[in-house]
């Protein structure tokens, strides 16, 4: 019990320590080698700049756009990914006939399509939402497909021997058994969605934190560049945390959850 608890508390102690160590090392490195401020600013300067960035209301307008794009793209990917995953997992002939297409579309570097999306959908948020959705779609779909297939034969037989109907089998067995796969896909998917949004903002548009990165880069303001990147990381972390919490709530029985706590 105490062991389980200390295992749970451990990251809360080690993470701040590691972060402090990281910033100290960074500071020492910059001072020792007298690195050019434009190449790598001191952490102090970055934090100062971060303070300014956070206090600037315009930053939060950008952040809101980025979060909106990411969540819309992610939710679209979730809906389409789950539907496509279920269909491909359940209907072998569809999966068979689409497999070459799916593999091909996975291999295509989707980020390279952004200029096309900008041409088709403009510089607004639509092109970024589509980019985020495209990137998040595949991990979700593939996981769901795997999950649908991985329902244990023995458990299926239990349902059959109980005369369970299709709907009952879905509710009591398939849905719950596939849930861990959906959530694993979502964990990867949210990260991919963020990447899609940011890259989309880099390449075209006039709002969002990705756009802000480009602007600060053009102004050669290295401390602010780092500050925006930190802000982006924090937002990304928060979104991942939401999905992770969802997982703890929805599948507390799964080993990926109860194993995590060292219990």
């Amino acid at each position: 019990m105490t062991r389980g608890r200390s295992m749970r508390l451990l990251p809360w102690i080690t993470t701040p320590l590691l972060l402090i160590a990281f910033f100290v090392a960074w500071d020492v490195f910059v001072r020792a080698f007298e690195v050019n401020e434009l190449v790598l600013p001191r952490p102090g300067a970055v934090f100062e700049s971060l303070g300014e960035v956070v206090r600037n209301p315009a930053t939060w307008d950008h952040a809101r756009v980025t979060v909106l794009e990411t969540t819309s793209g992610f939710l679209a990917a979730l809906v389409f990914g789950v539907v496509a995953g279920v269909v491909l997992g359940k209907v072998p002939w569809i999966e068979r006939s689409l497999r070459p297409m799916i593999v091909a579309s996975q291999v295509v570097p989707k980020v390279a399509l952004i200029p096309l999306f900008v041409i088709w959908f403009g510089f607004g948020i639509t092109s970024k939402v589509i980019m985020a959705a495209m990137l998040a779609f595949f991990p979700i779909m593939l996981n769901v497909q795997l999950g649908v297939r991985s329902v244990e034969a023995g458990q299926r037989e239990v349902m059959r021997s109980l005369n369970a109907g299709r709907w009952q089998t879905f509710v009591h067995l398939e849905l719950r058994s596939t849930m861990p796969y959906v959530l694993a896909g979502m964990e990867v998917g949210i990260v991919f969605a963020i990447i899609g949004t940011i890259v989309g903002e880099y390449l075209g548009g006039s709002e969002g934190l990705g756009y802000l990165v480009v602007v600060t880069l053009n102004a050669l303001d290295a401390p602010q560049l780092f500050a925006v990147i930190i802000l982006l990381s924090v937002i990304g972390l928060a979104m991942y945390f939401v999905v992770n919490t969802l997982k703890r709530v929805l599948i507390p029985w799964h080993e990926s959850v109860y194993g995590q706590n060292g219990v």
């Binding site: 244990e152 023995g154 458990q155 037989e157 239990v158 021997s161 109980l162 005369n163 009591h172 067995l173 719950r176 058994s177 599948i251 029985w253 799964h254």
Partner: peptide, 19 residues
């Protein structure tokens, strides 16, 4: 199905639902 309704089956593996 009317026959299956009278059945109780215990499998060689427990086959419980972990959730």
């Amino acid at each position: 199905p009317t026959v299956v309704d009278q059945l109780g089956v215990v499998f060689q593996e427990a086959n419980l639902f972990p959730w």
